[in-house]
Structure formats: C-alpha cells, structure tokens
C-alpha cells in the first residue's frame, strides 16, 4: 500500500500523463467503459446480460489457440482467434436454446464452462511447450490497462466508432426490436440481422476489452454500468448515454487505482468502481419509489 503523499504524487502523475503510456492507458480504459456500457445496455434489455460473461470466458481458447498456432503475441491473430471462439460460443448458446429443451440459462453456463475448459486445456499445452508464452496468462485473466498498446487503443476506437454510429443510425429499429421483437418482425425490421450484428460487435468489443478488463471480469463492465444506468433513467437514449458515461468513468478510475496500487489488476478495480456507482444508484432508487407510485395513481 502506498502512503498518502505517494498516492497523491502518483495520482498527479496519472492524470497529467506523467508517462507517455498513460495517455494510451486512460484512452483505452475510457473506451472500454464506453463500449461495454452501450453494448451492455442493449444486451441487458434483451435479457442477455450474462452473455457478456460467457463471451468473455469463451475468448480464452481463442487467445490460447492463436498463441499456439502463431507462436507469438501479435494483436491481429489474437483478436481474430478470440472473436471467433466468442462468436462460436454465442452461436452455440443460440443453437442449444433453439433445438433442445435445455433451459437458456443452463445453455449459457454449458457454453461458458465448456469454452473456458477448452481454454484451460490449450493453455496447459501452451505452458508445457518450449515457446512458453505463459507470462501473459494472469493479464489475460484479470487485465492490465497500463500495458495496452497504441494498436489496441486504435482497435477500441474503431469499435467505439462503429458502435456509436450503429446505435445512432439504427436507434429506432434497435429500440423496437429490443422492446417488442414480434412487432419489429411485423414492421419489417430485420431482427435476425440486428441480433447477429449485436452479437458480433459484442464479441469483438469484449475481446478488445480483455487487455484492460480481463476475460473473467469483462462481464462486470458489460452488466453493471447498464444495470446502474437503468436505475437512473426512464428512456432508452438516456440509458445508453448514462451507461456509456458510467462505464467510461469506472474504466478510468479503475486504471487509476491499478496505477496507484502496484499489483492490483485494472479489471477488478474497474468493476468495483462500476459496482459502487450501481450501489449509489440502487440507494437513490430505493428512496424514490413513492414518487413513481404517486405518478401511477
């Protein structure tokens, strides 16, 4: 634990970008929070909040597979591999719920654990292999925002741009398809295309967030800012904006905490900040129900 004066000093260093890499760290953490907040809100409203958990875990075998095949830690194969396995997990969940009487929550749990188990197998083979790219495992599990590279920040910025453009342009069809899928289908909205588009974007976003948030806790960044935003807002666009804001602030605060306390991974710190915001929002909401009841009377 750093002393108070140390903590103040490091805080000043962090927010004045005292090291070159801090600019990338802060930008990356904020982008992760923003993307996860927006996509997480859409997943939350479709009752797919825990899909973020499954996709995060399912990225692990993709990362390990890319390591095994290419033998080094290049960004492109890692992102492609992880996105591929995350998407495959999403498709598996959809397929199981369509064709069997297995319950949707169990389907999600099966896919999550099966893909994570496969990841564990591949990683153990990787660790035994001479190339020994094992040092990154803890960072993949829990995230290390400070080690983010400009290339990864660029990827995050690209995903953020696509997400924001997509949500802005397709706001109405997305709203209708999320609220009333039947009505959307009847109105000619291509709900299937939107669903798979959202899945693909989520998989990509989760993979890109792994460097900062880690595969285990990226779910927290998907679920918690969205759930907090839902408590504070009454309309979809407000919820999206609030979730993006809460996510971005939690991301930056998490990166700061991780910088402040060496050894603390950034993923858990981000999720804890988001959970604090949720706790405050929950308390505010508990104090307010009378107003809502009067409005309904």
């Amino acid at each position: 634990m750093p002393s108070w004066s140390e903590a103040v000093e490091r805080t000043v260093v962090f927010f004045t970008l005292g090291y070159d890499f801090l600019g990338w760290t802060i930008a990356g953490a904020a982008l992760v929070g923003l993307i996860c907040g927006v996509l997480g809100s859409l997943l939350y409203l479709r009752r797919l909040a825990l899909l973020g958990d499954a996709l995060g875990h399912a990225a692990l075998p993709g990362v390990a597979g890319a390591f095994l095949i290419t033998g080094h830690k290049a960004l492109a194969p890692l992102v492609i591999g992880a996105t591929a396995t995350a998407l495959l997990a999403a498709l598996t969940i959809t397929w199981i719920t369509r064709v069997s009487r297995t319950r949707p929550d169990a389907a999600l749990g099966i896919a999550l654990s099966a893909f994570f188990g496969l990841g564990a197998v591949l990683f153990s083979i990787l660790q035994a292999s001479p190339s020994g790219a094992q040092s990154g495992l803890n960072h993949i599990l829990f995230g290390n925002a400070a080690a983010i590279t400009p290339g990864e920040v660029g990827l995050l910025a690209g995903i953020a741009a696509v997400t924001l453009a997509g949500v802005t342009l397709l706001y109405r069809p997305l709203q209708l398809a999320s609220f009333d899928p039947v009505g959307a289908k009847l109105a000619g909205v291509p709900t299937g295309v939107l669903h798979y588009g959202l899945m693909t974007l989520s998989a990509l976003a989760i993979v890109a967030s792994v460097q900062s948030a880690g595969v285990v806790l990226v779910a927290g960044m998907i679920i918690t800012p969205a759930a907090a935003a839902r408590l504070l807002t009454r309309r979809l666009h407000a919820m999206l904006a609030a979730a993006a804001g809460i996510g971005a602030v939690s991301g930056v605060l998490g990166a700061w905490l991780s910088f402040l306390m060496p050894g603390v991974s950034s993923g858990p710190a981000m999720v804890l900040c988001a959970a604090l915001v949720y706790g405050v929002a929950f308390a505010l909401r508990l104090r307010r129900p009378r107003a809502a009841a009067e409005a309904a009377a």
């Binding site: 009752r47 958990d53 929550d105 927290g220 998907i222 918690t224 759930a227 858990p268 959970a275």
Partner: peptide, 14 residues
C-alpha cells in the same frame, strides 16, 4: 440475470 451478474462480478473483483 443482471442482479446475479452485478453481485458476483463485484464480489469477485473485491
């Protein structure tokens, strides 16, 4: 489902 997610990710992070 989100309630489960919020609680366990927060506690695990802690």
């Amino acid at each position: 489902d989100a309630a489960i997610g919020v609680v366990f990710t927060a506690l695990f992070a802690l």
